[in-house]
Design a protein around this nucleic acid. Structure first.
Lengths: 140, 140
DNA sequence: CTTGCACCTCTAGTCGCTAGAGGATGTAGG
DNA sequence: CCTACATCCTCTAGCGACTAGAGGTGCAAG
């Protein structure tokens, strides 16, 4: 039952101090009790919640999605269909992003390979950017 | 020498009208001449510049990087080493992003596959987020 | 001449934080 | 007990790259 300060909570959860306060402000984390001197005092459950949030953020889930996931976590009797849907949507998004980035990689490689370190008027980087028709791929 | 309105410039360049004004505001695009009635009047060169900007943005270049690329384009006597460096940095960034996203994809796939559409207390999505140790990869 | 769309400027909002000011509290050493 | 210093508090403003909306003007077709 020892009190966990915000700094300690930050160290244990890996979430920065101002970010913890920010999460409280937007209602992702409920306001903890306060010490005599008005300092936040966290409990182990809050640390778990912060780890959950951090992990979800690292996986690219938006704050709104995390809010939904957290309400699901709080009530384990619900169907997990929502959580499943959120994860699936995120997966589709990630797959799309990977495809775009792969195409982009090809294009950048061609740009860099084409650049002979001469003057700008022979530079493929500039040329490709100026004229979309030069693109290796026209995915965008 | 017909005047190109901002709407027409938008259609031809693929850059939205408010975004064109925004680019003017941040100095990416110089302020065009105005009509009698104070309406912006663009020239073909402006459209090219907008296409250049749009293309670079789609490739993920930041506005600051584009600013540099544009000054290079304006003065073709310079060495293209800067443009080359910008493109190379971007390539490295893209490769890193692809690696992260691939690892993330694996993790999301495991989550979604593990979800039996039952109740939340058996849901792998929630479980994995709550306990980092469950991760397929610990890259983050 | 009116209708209605496109244009104008300006401000404020988006997202997920991050930085800094200016002050209070808590703790360790002397 | 005093001082020094880290940590905490609240509040506001800033980031990047736009986007949305209010409130008003210009212009072209019917």
């Amino acid at each position: 039952m020892k009190k966990i300060t915000i700094g300690e909570a930050s160290r244990q959860s890996g979430v920065k101090v101002p970010t913890i306060r920010y999460y409280e402000g937007i209602g992702l984390l409920s306001a903890p009790s306060r010490s005599e001197g008005n300092q936040r005092s966290y409990e182990p459950a809050d640390i778990s919640r912060l780890v959950f949030i951090r992990h979800a953020r690292e996986l690219g889930f938006e704050v709104d999605a995390i809010r939904t996931l957290l309400t699901l976590q709080d009530d384990p009797n619900q169907s997990c269909a929502s959580a499943d849907a959120i994860a699936k949507a995120r997966l589709i998004d990630v797959e799309q992003r990977i495809r775009s980035l792969m195409a982009l990689k090809v294009e950048l490689e061609a740009m860099v390979a084409g650049c002979g370190h001469g003057r700008v008027d022979q530079c493929r980087v500039i040329e490709v950017l100026a004229d979309h028709g030069q693109c290796a791929h026209s995915y965008h």
